[in-house]
Amino acid sequence: MEIDTKPQETPKKDCKPQECMGALLPVRDALEVLSGRWKLPILIALSDRPKRFNEISKDINGITDKMLSKELKDLEINKLVTRKVYDTFPPTVEYSRTEHSQSLTNVIMALKDWGTLHRKEIIGK
């Protein structure tokens, strides 16, 4: 399956509902992949170097092992994280961000900037 990587047009203010929804499909796809409380913190935890499961767990306050495992599998399915198993006893497993996930860096920074503005607007801090 080939993915269209060309920039999509921004929906026009006067577009018909079908046209607007079609233009927003990539946004909906992105939100589905990154939705939830833990996916972005996991990607940020892996931003400096590959880490083992317990290292990621320690970096993310409040996540359970079950949830971390589930979210890592989701991120792996979406090609944002890779899992490497070393032939040791006991087996060593290391997680790292993919090259594809590096394209999210600007998105994460834009969300941080917007979140800062939004906090100021809502709570004045």
Rank of each mutant, 00 (worst) to 15 (best):
K66R: 15
M21F: 09
D4E: 10
A110C: 12
K84A: 04
L104Y: 06
T98I: 04
L31Y: 00
T92H: 06
N78Y: 06
P26Q: 05
R28C: 12
K112D: 03
E19Y: 03
E76P: 00
P7G: 00
H100R: 15
K13C: 05
N54A: 01
E121N: 12
E55N: 09
L75G: 02
A23T: 08
A23D: 11
D29K: 14
G22H: 05
N78K: 04
K13E: 12
E121G: 09
P41F: 03
K84P: 00
E19T: 14
D59Q: 06
L68H: 03
R28M: 14
S96M: 07
T98N: 07
H100E: 12
K120N: 09
L117Y: 09
P90A: 11
L68A: 01
K16G: 05
L24W: 08
G115H: 04
C15L: 02
L111P: 00
D74S: 10
D14M: 01
H118Q: 13
I60E: 01
H100I: 14
T10C: 07
R28F: 13
K16L: 15
V81D: 00
M109T: 08
P41L: 11
M109R: 15
L72Y: 02
D113L: 14
L80G: 03
I3D: 07
T88V: 12
K66Q: 15
T5G: 04
L40W: 02
D29N: 12
K39T: 05
K6S: 13
K70I: 11
K120H: 05
D74E: 15
M67D: 04
L46G: 01
L34T: 10
L72I: 11
L68V: 02
Q8W: 11
L104W: 04
L117V: 09
P7R: 08
K112M: 07
T64C: 03
L25M: 11
H118Y: 14
L72Q: 05
L80T: 02
D14K: 06
K73C: 01
S57L: 15
K16V: 06
M21N: 08
Q18C: 08
P17G: 07
I42P: 04
G124D: 08
